[in-house]
C-alpha cells in the first residue's frame, strides 16, 4: 500500500516535471497571467469617472469576473491539453512500456499521471490567483484614491454626514476587494478544472488520438452546463416524450456531470453571500465524481492492449 502510494507520487512528480519543462503549458500560463493583469485596463473602459461608489463596484466586478474567468479558462485549457496528451505521448515515445514493464500496476501509473496533472493545475491556479490578488489590490488603491479625491473639497471634520459617507465609501471598496468569499470562488473553479481533467483522462484511456480526446472532453464540458436542464426535464416530463428523446436526455442526466452548478461562482463574484456549507457540498460532489471517473478510467486502462 505504502509502496504503491510511493510509486504514484514518483510518477506524479515526473509528470509535473515534464509539464513544467514543456513550453506550451508555460506559454498558456503566461497568457493567463497577462490577461488577469490586463483586466484592470478593460475595467477602466467600462465607465468614465462618475460616481465613486457606483463606479467602483462596477469596476471591481469587472476585475473579479475577468480574473476568475481567466483562471477558469486557462486552467481549462491546461487541463484539457495536459490530459489529452498524457497517454498518447507515453505511447508515442514508448516510455509507457518501460514503466509498465517495471513492478508498477497500471492503476498506479494512471493515478500517478492524474495526480501529476492535478499538481500542475494547482500550481497554475495558485500562480494565477496571486496575479488576481495583485490586480485586485491595485484596483483597490485606485478606488481609494478616487474616493479621497471625491471628498477633497469637503470639510470632513465638521460635517459628520460627509465624513460618514466618505468612510462608508472607502469601507465598501475595501470590503468588495478583500472578500474572503473569493477563496470559495477559486476553490470551486479549481474543482471544476480538476473534473474536466478527470473527464479528459477517462476519454484518453480508450481514445486513439488526442484530437478525439480534446473534442469529446470539450463537448462533455459544454453539455455539462446544460445537464441541469436535461435532468429536470427528464425527472418531470420523462413519460411525455418518445423513448428516443427521453433515452437521450436521460443518458445526459445520468452520465454527464452537472457543470452548471459551479456557476454559483458568479454569485460569489457579484458579492452575494454563499455559505461555506454549500461550497463544501459542491466540492465534495466534484471530488466523488472525480473518484468515479478515475475508477472507470482504471478499469478501461487495466484491460487496454498496449
Amino acid at each position: 500500500m505504502i509502496s504503491s502510494l510511493h510509486r504514484i507520487l514518483i510518477i506524479a512528480r515526473n509528470t509535473l516535471t515534464e509539464a513544467v519543462r514543456q513550453k506550451v503549458l508555460n506559454v498558456l500560463l503566461i497568457f493567463g497571467l497577462v490577461l488577469i493583469c490586463s483586466s484592470v485596463t478593460v475595467s477602466q473602459l467600462a465607465t468614465p469617472d462618475i460616481d465613486a461608489a457606483g463606479l467602483f463596484s462596477e469596476q471591481i466586478k469587472f476585475v473579479k469576473d475577468f480574473g476568475c474567468g481567466a483562471i477558469g479558462l486557462f486552467g481549462f485549457f491546461i487541463a484539457l491539453l495536459s490530459t489529452a496528451l498524457l497517454i498518447p505521448q507515453e505511447l508515442d515515445k514508448r516510455t509507457i512500456y518501460t514503466i509498465l514493464a517495471k513492478p508498477v500496476r497500471r492503476a498506479e501509473f494512471l493515478l500517478g499521471k492524474f495526480v501529476g496533472v492535478v499538481l500542475l493545475l494547482a500550481l497554475s491556479v495558485a500562480l494565477m490567483s496571486l496575479a488576481f490578488a495583485a490586480t485586485l489590490y491595485w484596483q483597490e488603491s485606485v478606488g481609494l484614491a478616487a474616493v479621497e479625491a471625491n471628498y477633497a473639497q469637503m470639510d470632513l471634520k465638521h460635517t459628520p454626514t460627509a465624513q460618514s459617507m466618505h468612510d462608508h465609501d472607502a469601507a465598501q471598496i475595501i470590503k468588495q476587494v478583500r472578500d474572503p468569499q473569493l477563496v470559495e470562488a477559486v476553490l470551486l473553479i479549481f474543482a471544476k478544472i480538476v473534473m474536466t481533467a478527470a473527464i479528459g483522462l477517462l476519454i484518453s484511456t480508450f481514445a486513439t488520438s488526442w484530437i478525439f480526446t480534446i473534442i469529446t472532453t470539450f463537448m462533455i464540458y459544454l453539455i455539462g452546463h446544460g445537464e441541469s436542464l436535461a435532468r429536470t426535464f427528464w425527472l418531470s416530463h420523462g413519460a411525455e416524450t418518445t423513448i428516443w428523446q427521453s433515452g437521450l436526455i436521460g443518458l445526459i442526466a445520468l452520465l454527464i456531470p452537472d457543470m452548471n452548478s459551479f456557476t454559483i461562482v458568479d454569485e460569489i463574484l457579484a458579492g452575494n453571500r454563499v455559505p461555506w456549507h454549500d461550497v463544501l457540498n459542491l466540492l465534495c460532489y466534484a471530488n466523488v465524481y472525480v473518484i468515479v471517473l478515475l475508477a472507470v478510467s482504471v478499469v478501461i486502462f487495466d484491460y487496454r492492449e498496449i
Partner: peptide, 18 residues
C-alpha cells in the same frame, strides 16, 4: 446517487435565491 445529489445541490442553490 449523482441524480439525487445534483437535485439536492439545485435545491440548495434555489434557497440561496439563485
Amino acid at each position: 446517487v449523482k441524480i439525487v445529489w445534483e437535485q439536492q445541490i439545485a435545491r440548495e442553490q434555489d434557497n440561496l435565491r439563485y
